[in-house]
Measured scan of single mutants.
Amino acid sequence: YHPGVFRGDKWSCCHQKEKTGQGCDKTR
C-alpha cells in the first residue's frame, strides 16, 4: 500500500524507486 503517489522515479511517500515494491504502510 502506498499513501503517496508514484511520481517520476519514486513514491512520494517513502521514496522507494520500485513502483511494484511492497509499499510503505500496510496498515490500511
Rank of each mutant, 00 (worst) to 15 (best):
Y1C: 04
Y1R: 12
Y1W: 01
Y1L: 01
Y1E: 14
Y1M: 09
Y1K: 05
Y1T: 08
H2R: 00
H2E: 00
H2A: 00
H2G: 00
H2Y: 01
H2S: 01
P3G: 03
P3F: 10
P3D: 15
P3E: 08
P3L: 12
P3K: 05
G4E: 07
G4C: 05
G4W: 01
G4S: 04
G4D: 11
G4V: 00
V5Q: 09
V5I: 06
V5Y: 07
V5D: 13
V5N: 13
F6T: 11
F6A: 07
F6K: 05
F6Y: 13
F6V: 06
R7N: 11
R7T: 12
R7Y: 03
R7S: 08
R7H: 04
R7P: 00
R7W: 01
G8M: 14
G8C: 07
G8E: 15
G8P: 11
G8V: 05
D9R: 12
D9C: 02
D9L: 07
D9Y: 04
D9V: 03
D9S: 13
D9G: 14
D9A: 10
K10G: 12
K10R: 09
K10Y: 03
W11K: 10
W11T: 09
W11E: 02
W11N: 12
W11V: 01
W11P: 13
W11Q: 04
W11H: 04
W11C: 06
S12D: 11
S12V: 02
S12P: 01
S12H: 02
S12W: 00
S12K: 10
S12G: 04
S12M: 05
C13R: 02
C13K: 00
C14A: 02
C14D: 14
C14I: 01
C14V: 02
C14K: 08
C14H: 04
H15V: 01
H15T: 14
H15A: 05
H15W: 03
H15R: 07
H15F: 14
H15G: 10
H15K: 02
H15S: 09
Q16K: 13
Q16D: 12
Q16N: 13
Q16Y: 04
Q16C: 09
Q16A: 13
Q16R: 08
Q16S: 10
K17Q: 14
K17H: 13
K17I: 02
K17M: 15
K17E: 13
K17C: 03
K17D: 14
E18G: 10
E18T: 02
E18R: 05
E18D: 11
E18H: 01
K19Y: 01
K19L: 12
K19S: 15
K19A: 06
K19R: 08
K19I: 05
K19C: 05
K19G: 07
T20Y: 10
T20S: 14
T20I: 10
T20A: 13
G21I: 07
G21S: 11
G21R: 03
G21V: 11
G21K: 05
Q22K: 02
Q22V: 10
Q22F: 02
Q22Y: 04
Q22E: 09
Q22P: 06
Q22H: 13
C24W: 00
C24E: 08
C24S: 02
C24Y: 00
D25I: 06
D25Q: 07
D25A: 08
D25F: 12
D25W: 04
D25T: 09
K26M: 15
K26L: 12
K26G: 15
K26I: 10
K26H: 04
K26Q: 15
K26W: 08
T27E: 07
T27V: 09
T27W: 14
T27D: 07
T27P: 13
R28P: 14
R28D: 08
R28L: 13
R28H: 14
R28M: 15
R28W: 03
R28G: 12
R28V: 12
